[in-house]
Amino acid sequence: MITIKHDGCILCVGCSSVCPTNAIEVVGTRMEHFADKCIDCGLCVRVCPANVIEMYKGVKNHKELPAGAEVG
């Protein structure tokens, strides 16, 4: 389960660039997270320079990683 603290977001779209499933995109003037596409890989959390993306265990949303996606 991903949450974004929009106040601190600098709209660098770093999270979109690493997201293997397009689950995080700019909509209007802020980043939106689409839980239905999210596979809880956490790459966006690790890459966010402003440290505004948080991930909580609990509400899980497991799907297979697509071919070619790397969790590094």
Binding site: G42, V45, R46, V47, P49, A50, N51, I53, Y56, G72
Partner: peptide, 19 residues
Amino acid sequence: GGNVANGDKLGALKGAQPK
């Protein structure tokens, strides 16, 4: 480096800490 997770715990995962 994006693969260097070195930050404080954020939620359940360590976040990047450039700042």
